[in-house]
Design a protein around this nucleic acid. Sequence first.
DNA 1: AATCCACAGGAAGTGCTGGGCG
DNA 2: CGCCCAGCACTTCCTGTGGATT
Length: 398
Amino acid sequence: MASVEEIFERYLSSRIFKDREKLLPDYVPEELPHRDEQIRRLATVLAPALVGSRPSNVFIYGLTGTGKTAVTKYVLRKLREKARARVEYVYINCRQNNTSYRVLAELAKYLGVKVPFTGLALGEVMKRVLRGLERKKRMLIVVLDEIDNLVKRNGDDVLYFLSRINEQLEKSRVSLIGITNDLKFMEFLDARVKSSLGEEELVFPPYNAIQLEDILEKRAREAFNEGVLEPGVIKRVAAIAARQNGDCRLALDILLKAADIADREGSPRVTLAHVDKARQEIEKNLTIDVIKTMPLHVKLTLAAVYLLTRRGVKTITTGMIYDTYKDLVTRVGIEPVTQRRISDVINELDMLGLINARVVSMGRYGRTKVISLSASVKSVEEGLSEDLIMKTVLGNTH
DNA sequence: AATCCACAGGAAGTGCTGGGCG
DNA sequence: CGCCCAGCACTTCCTGTGGATT
């Protein structure tokens, strides 16, 4: 075991990083390669704000890691500089603030209006937001990132409110920018919200391997000392990310992790082996983190799938999972939830990417879902065993 | 061609939490 | 204090259905 001094000392003498910050996910670089088209279009749409006229609402589509958030922040920052305080923007992430109430509360907080984090009626929060806006006397651009999280759970009442808010405002104006990685998102919306929100649409295509390489190359020059990357490292990282729908965030994640691993090992260079290790570790940590934070019955359901898989069952169905689940539950002395609920839980696990579920008709033998584990058996095992109850349940099941 | 399985998944409601407001 | 609010995990009750078997 290295002493604290040794750890710090080694970190300071690291010859790998020049500026590690440049690889962190919230860093927005001064240059966004291969997004000129999107930057130009967004700037064109927002430009009217400079002369005090309300820009059209914008809707931005694109898979994760295609630069949607980065481009939006980039353009808005420039806009605010040029506009000299006449234009402001709020950025609200709807994955963290995933209810109608929380989004409005976040907006209120930005406006300097006091709103408790629970307890009020929605209408009351809307009133306060309105009052806060009038007091501001500004052009405000509201960015709702990962907006699909909001609508799928809560419906579009907040969106409806926001999209018609200008009718109730005299001294201020509001424009909306909605960002989503769900391409079918618009279908969920009320027609009126749809037409209002989709005044302008912007699509962010995924990066291909060559573009990713280019981006990584530029970023690596800022973040690393010269010559620390073994040849082929960037190509490998780009290739992995390109396979994952051209996800640039993932690419930067892997690169950072690989460098961290190399650093920790005291290696003077980042090698291809480090990249592979980083990819595995990221994948594993992701699933373990998800599993750790799941509620008990979801964990038990996943455990049921895990057990059936380990027993070598060929086609796992909803009914089988429910039976195994009930078995596990009674073993810990808890009341089982209904099959209806487990049916939903299975869908949740599917969406989290931990399992793979698809509806299949087996004719005479009914219509059900066929489920398979899609996360690695090992990470599931590890994720579940962090839970004390799960540990005992799985412990005496062989 | 009709049947019927084993669920899917919608709708509505309940009970609880953690907080309002007057 | 009593009543109201949003959100959540869950229940109850329900209708719908693809296709192998009869």
